[in-house]
Amino acid sequence: MRLEVAMRSALSLANHGIGSCYPNPSVGCVILDKSNNLIGCGRTSDGGRPHAELNALSSLQGNPRGGTAFVTLEPCAHKDTTPSCAELLIKSGVKRVYISVKDPDKRTAGKGIKLLEKAGIEVYTGLFSDEASDQNAGFLKRINHGLPSVSLKIASSLDGKIACFNGQSKWLTGKIARTHGHLLRAKYDVILSGINSIIKDNSRLNCRVKGLEKRSPIKVVVDSKLSIPLSSNVINNVKKVPLIIWTSKFSNKKKKKKLIDMGVEVLEIPKNNNNYLDLNYGLKNLSKKGYNSLLVEGGSEIYSSLIKEELVDKIYYYRSGKIIGGDGLSSISSYNLKNLKNAKKFKIFSSDIIDGDILEIWKK
Score class of each variant (00 low, 15 high):
Pro242Thr: 10
Asn273Arg: 12
Lys200Ile: 13
Ile195Asp: 08
Pro64Gly: 08
Ile18Cys: 10
Asn272Val: 11
Asn292His: 05
Tyr124Trp: 06
Ser203Ala: 12
Leu54Arg: 14
Pro104Ser: 12
Asn285Cys: 08
Glu131Val: 11
Leu183Ile: 14
Ser151Gly: 06
Lys111Gly: 07
Arg2His: 13
Ile354Ser: 12
Leu212Trp: 08
Arg8Glu: 14
Arg2Leu: 14
Arg204Thr: 14
Val209Tyr: 02
Ile228Trp: 03
Glu301Ala: 15
Val209Ala: 09
Cys29Arg: 07
Leu184Lys: 06
Ser129His: 08
Tyr188Asp: 13
Asn136Gln: 11
Ser320Met: 01
Gly110Met: 06
Leu306Pro: 03
Lys347Met: 03
Asp80His: 09
Asn55Met: 01
Ser156His: 03
Val222Asp: 04
Ala86Asp: 05
Ser100Val: 05
Ser149Gly: 02
Ile235Ala: 15
Lys95Leu: 05
Leu306Trp: 01
Leu286Asp: 03
Pro50Gln: 11
Gly299Asp: 07
Gly321Pro: 01
Asp33Asn: 12
Gly110His: 03
Gly167Tyr: 00
Gly47Trp: 02
Ile315Gly: 02
Arg319Met: 09
Ser9Met: 07
Ser100Gln: 05
Gly19Thr: 12
Asn342Thr: 07
Pro229Val: 11
Gly356Trp: 02
Met1Lys: 11
Asn273Leu: 07
